[in-house]
């Protein structure tokens, strides 16, 4: 509101100022407003990033700095002891460390690849063709964006039990194929591809499969990458402790969260290791996001819901 008041004054006093400064500043932008925006972003930016920075510092603190009083925010003598301790604890577990890595990579890779294929194939059909039931189905997808895992958890468990998939990789992998968010984003992005491309291919006698595989799929690479990032995050951030019990089948995030233990019985002796574990858990999705950021924003530009 500061910006609004200030701008009204200058525009009342004369248009010349606006004209002269247009070369440097965008029109309709007051200096007061800019300062206000920078101020807000800096204050809230600190609020958003502070806990993560704090945690990273905590992970590099030697034991005597973790328990110092009054507590320090920043580490003074950084050490990698906590991180190596984390891996020592993991390697002492009777399941070898590489097995956790294999499980994570296998579940994430197969789950994501299957989701990409199945969702892009279906999204292609709904986006590029008009056939009976296609609009209705997409309406259901939009509503299904709101079904969270808690609403469906109990029946899902019963269904997985019936299929005999409890305590197998498939209990995590197959349901991930059908995530509505991926289908939704893919379809919205495919809508931005000009129909004329598809029409031209049809006239040339290309089959639906050929149009999908050769024309549409190469054009939606940003969407594929975005959906991939979301799928990896979903698989990484939800340790599936409900459906996988066997230690040999558990993923790395689940194994680390077991070491961290219950947040309400904090193991004081492992305070540094806990911080290191949390840091590993949060760095992986953040790194993936950073590498894919520009493609994600390209895809999200088409995410609007039309009613």
């Amino acid at each position: 509101m500061i910006g609004a008041a200030k701008k009204d004054k200058t525009s009342a006093s004369g248009r010349r100022i606006v004209k002269v400064s247009r070369a440097v500043r965008k029109p309709n932008r007051s200096l007061g407003g800019d300062i206000f925006i920078w101020g807000i972003l800096i204050i809230f930016g600190i609020f958003f990033i502070f806990p993560l920075v704090f945690n990273i510092n905590q992970a590099f603190k030697p034991l005597n700095e973790i328990f110092i009083f009054p507590p320090n925010l920043f580490v003074i003598n950084p050490t990698t002891d906590n991180i190596s301790d984390l891996f020592i604890i993991m390697s002492r577990s009777w399941v070898t460390f590489t097995r956790y890595i294999f499980n994570t990579v296998f579940i994430t890779f197969v789950g994501t690849a299957g989701h990409l294929f199945v969702a892009s194939l279906g999204a292609f059909a709904v986006s590029k063709y008009d056939f009976p039931g296609s609009k209705f189905f997409f309406g259901i997808i939009i509503t299904a964006l709101m079904f969270n895992q808690y609403v469906t958890a109990i029946p899902n468990f019963l269904i997985l039990t019936q299929l005999g998939w409890i305590d197998t990789y498939w209990a995590v992998i197959i349901p991930a194929f059908g995530m509505p968010l991926g289908f939704f984003l893919m379809k919205q992005f495919m809508d931005t591809i000009p129909v004329s491309l598809v029409e031209a291919a049809k006239i040339d006698g290309a089959s639906e499969w050929l149009i999908y595989w050769r024309i549409v799929l190469p054009l939606v690479k940003p969407a594929l990458l975005t959906v991939m990032v979301f799928a990896v995050q979903a698989l990484w951030n939800n340790p599936q402790s409900l459906v996988i019990h066997t230690e040999q089948l558990k993923t790395l995030p689940l194994a680390i969260s077991q070491i961290i233990g219950s947040p309400h019985a904090p193991q004081v002796a492992r305070a540094g290791v806990n911080a290191a574990g949390l840091m590993v858990l949060m760095m992986v999705p953040i790194i993936i996001f950073v590498t894919a950021q520009s493609n994600i924003l390209k895809t999200m530009a088409s995410s609007g819901i039309k009613e």
Binding site: G45, F48, I49, P51, Q233, P263, L281, M282, I286, F289
Partner: peptide
Amino acid sequence: VTLVFYAPTIAGSAYLV
């Protein structure tokens, strides 16, 4: 700046800090 604001959303169990 986008990363700064979005990082907590994707950081998963980092809220335990």
